[in-house]
Amino acid sequence: MMKIRLSRGMIDVLSGAASIGCFLLLWLALTRHTGLGELIPGPDVVLAALFKGLFGKVGRHGILVHAGYSLARVLAGFAIGGAAGVVIGLSMGWSRFAEAVFQPLYRVVRPIPPIAWIPISIIWFGLGESAKVFLIFLASFANVTLNAWSGARDADRQLIGAARMLGANQRQIFLTIVLPSAVPQIFAGLQVAMSNSWATVLAAEMVRSSEGLGWMIVTGMSNNDIVQILSGIVAIGVVGFVLSVAMRKAEALLCRWNHGGR
């Protein structure tokens, strides 16, 4: 058993490396030897630019600093939006009155993609950080609210009955039963919120900004610099990947009880 499993893992790694390697080689060969080279640069050029940019400068900052700007905006808006979403969502799931009050408003606001708020956020908040944080707030708020809401609403009636029979009062039932029941759903919402936030911050930076990864690719566009765009996209992919892995790790840690097996 052990031997088979090990070799299967090896095959996965090898085939992954082979597949990506083939792709890079094909890309390299096509840019070196065909007309494609005049249109886009090869992977060697992009990676070289990426490494140079990490510690050198793209515009006023290095790529790491640009990524830091984008990340800081995401984390600020995500923290506020996530917290507000959890509070409003849980109250909607717990109290039918709160549900009746917020539901119609939520129904109007939710289908509007956060990106569509970019123009009005610039009018309301100007060009500074608050406009971007507001957009990320919207991007994370909607998803988290929805999931916290359904998570709290679908809390197991029998578990609530068990808690009452053990002497818990309403406040204790909310804190010890409804809240933990909703945690897995809230986490699912936070994960979607995080990837939406990442997309939204890029859009916001592309429309109006003077730093960040979105700024980097959009100035690449206006300066006709495809190398800058492609190295920016690689950086965006890496940060996006790190964010989603971080969210999954946090979920695994906090929802240990939800994952079966010894």
Binding site: D156, Q158, G161, A162, A163, M165, P180, V183, W257, N258
Partner: peptide, 11 residues
């Protein structure tokens, strides 16, 4: 109450 479905708190 001891429930048939146990109803113990999974978290």
């Amino acid at each position: 109450v001891v429930f048939q479905s146990t109803a113990i708190f999974p978290w």
